[in-house]
Design a protein around this nucleic acid. Sequence first.
DNA 1: GCAAAAGTGTTCCAGATACACCCATGT
DNA 2: ACATGGGTGTATCTGGAACACTTTTGC
Lengths: 222, 222
Amino acid sequence: MSYTYDYPHYAVTADIVVFTIRDGTLQVLLVKRGAAPFKGRWALPGGYLKPDEDLEGCARRELEEETGLAGFYLEQLYTFGAIKRDPRERVITVAYFALIRSDAVSLRPATDVVGADWTALDALPPLAFDHEQIIAYARERLAAKLDYSTLAFQFLPERFTMRELHAVYETVLGKPLDRRNFYKKMLASGELQETAESRLEGAHRPAAVYRLRHPGEVRITR
Amino acid sequence: MSYTYDYPHYAVTADIVVFTIRDGTLQVLLVKRGAAPFKGRWALPGGYLKPDEDLEGCARRELEEETGLAGFYLEQLYTFGAIKRDPRERVITVAYFALIRSDAVSLRPATDVVGADWTALDALPPLAFDHEQIIAYARERLAAKLDYSTLAFQFLPERFTMRELHAVYETVLGKPLDRRNFYKKMLASGELQETAESRLEGAHRPAAVYRLRHPGEVRITR
DNA sequence: GCAAAAGTGTTCCAGATACACCCATGT
DNA sequence: ACATGGGTGTATCTGGAACACTTTTGC
């Protein structure tokens, strides 16, 4: 089978920067390439756009194939199209980023990769293509957007404690946040709803359990 | 000449939302299509990506062909790839937005359009493809970014008065801003440099003339 | 009673807002 | 002197930052 056009066309891919929080660090999902170019190198999950799916659909499909997950948060990041970014032929990639609760993922490598794993952002191996650049850009966007949206909750299950939420912010921003001010700000935001539940996790006072007032929806909070 | 690939490839275009301020309103550059589809309709300027240029280069070239302008501010906006957004074949478009000083433009229509003109944003005609959506998105981004960057200065010549700057903000945001607070905030930002010049424009006190402390550079101010 | 995390309140400062009068100029 | 837009200061409010002690639980 071949495809012929009467002026230049290009391969189009979706690559996804999948963030999660594991072991108290911000991690991204990488796959090990099983074929040239960059065989054996780590890369972002992603793949070619099919004629019958839109760009976001492509990103979701590729990621579902890798992780078995559906329904995750996905946002278009930027489109990278430098002439030589793929040594074989010109490939335009539309980069997305996704946020995932690591407790909900089971990795199952797809056919064209030999492995998939979470890697801490501050210990990235050398990556294929321009994927370092894509990750750096995604990280900036993620950190910036924590401040004015409810993105952070995508890392947490439906019910969570203040400490868990606090840890998400500290981990993503990479700096400590005063706990008292954080509690106040979150409660004042009106995005949280207290539940009747509380959670006992050791030899100390149990933590109140909250949930989002508008679950399953990322809101811009200003 | 034809181009053959062994899996699906796609036409890729760059479309540009070119903003300017004329007659006290925010306007966009539209071209009238001279060929099907949407022949005779207004559309965003833009065109096909060539194999030897990167995405931003494509946007710049297309815009230079239309306006004769170079060196304008250009920023990638979003990539639109819905399956049927072009009725002929699948086209992925990488949308950009540009900011231009209207006094510096002379329009010279390119070959595949029958005309080009500025149109006020609140009086847009029906547009080709999904270009209304692209413009709406660009407008949001522009308004949001005024608040935390020096984007607004791209609408002004190198030297300008406070009133001119004030008018740019009011026009883009579409709401009045207190003049005194605006002056204070701008001066406090440290981005302005007073010049020795002043400008006399009628039967009243002449206005001080400012310039950017870092001209030709869009800075994020927080 | 002690260790360990949960929960909570006040002060201070900076930046945003609201608002009204004097200044320099041409006619 | 008056009309016109240029230029400025003060009071208030709001949100963020800094900061330490009490509560609940298991052992």
